[in-house]
Design a protein around this nucleic acid. Sequence first.
DNA 1: AGCAAATAATGAACGCTATTCATTACTTAC
DNA 2: GTAAGTAATGAATAGCGTTCATTATTTGCT
Lengths: 228, 228
Amino acid sequence: MSVVALAKIPRPSKAQRIDTIVESARKVFCASGFEKGSIVDIAKDAGIAEGTIYRYFDGKRSLLDEVLHRHYAVFFDDVQQTLPSIEGHSNRLRYLIRRTLLSISGDRGICGLITRDKRPLDNETPSLSQDLNRQIAVLMADEVKAGIKSRTFHCNTSPSIVCDMIGGGLELIAYSYMRTGKSIDVDKVTDSISLTFLSGIESSDPTTESLANLVERLEQTADRLDHS
Amino acid sequence: MSVVALAKIPRPSKAQRIDTIVESARKVFCASGFEKGSIVDIAKDAGIAEGTIYRYFDGKRSLLDEVLHRHYAVFFDDVQQTLPSIEGHSNRLRYLIRRTLLSISGDRGICGLITRDKRPLDNETPSLSQDLNRQIAVLMADEVKAGIKSRTFHCNTSPSIVCDMIGGGLELIAYSYMRTGKSIDVDKVTDSISLTFLSGIESSDPTTESLANLVERLEQTADRLDHS
DNA sequence: AGCAAATAATGAACGCTATTCATTACTTAC
DNA sequence: GTAAGTAATGAATAGCGTTCATTATTTGCT
């Protein structure tokens, strides 16, 4: 035996191992995409053998699912905590749009991964990738439906189609962000989207609605004059 | 030599060969998708060897590009012929939406192929797949911009974002169609989309407009008073 | 502490692809 | 009719995800 003692390296716990693998997978997938990022690369990055990955994950796809799952968890925790504190269907929709845009512009790597990996259709792929958009779509649709019930919105159009337009718009904006690299002006885009669908969906006639806004601005101006 | 004469089968012309290959590729890709549809399958369907395909196409991707290119050609020929005959920006936008929906619901095979194959991002893949949506987006954006110039639409929102919402909405509707198989009510969906974005984009009535101007002047006056 | 039995990790081997290329078959031009 | 040119072939290659017999480590029991 050599003079140098063979230090028995203790094995990491199951949870640690999984964390290591998922983090390496995230790195590799974000850098190379799902197709091109290979299991060997991930194993190398994690400092383990390929086979080990298959002890903890069913396959490459499951690994991607876990990476995305962890990413989404943060988003949905945040949404679930914030959404109930916001008053009004329009404002809640607005928040959902804004929060999604923040998520997009906040992590370019994951955004690219999600953007590339759209739309599985096949029987076997269980389509976790578009869960974010799907779940958000549900949240939005609920808001629109509730808004219709409470007469905030009119019902000349289908809630699901409005949500498709918002969600689809957000997807294309994310795609454009990935292609061009031009940073997203979150507030501006939020305004633009909200304006576009709101004026088309709100119950009261446009005249009254904008009049109400104008009156509000007038009052604010009057307040300012009073204080000066 | 065997008694049966070896009938010298004359080779088909270059154009015929290409047509055969592309048609087989279309069949295979539509049936199995781009990933799962293999070159061997295509070659078998076309009755040739794999190697032959590579004499006419750079690779699998080019083959897909050609399949889509041929599909799009029909669509754009139709659009280019019809669009100029339609009066009014709203009506032209409406036509583009309707024509896209017809294209989607008209060829489930290709629709699935396009739906699955969204969003290349990588340097090498030259992204032919989303050409349809991109080119339509340009047509729509032109219409919106012209509408703003001619005061048909107001400019509180960005044309590109409106088009993202329409295009993205159409994509999600196509996706939903592929997943559920439920046929699309083209006219109803066209109406729904048009209503949603139109009422949000059309110029408000003159009374409100002038009032808005008045308020703005008042606000500016207040600003001046503040600064003095 | 020592010794099974259980559990984890390994990496060579497998099967499946797209792609290439020396070889063979056909066409064309003189 | 033959030689030069062009097209077609399919076995060979390289790269991937995945499996599994083998090896290494940990755990539980006395």
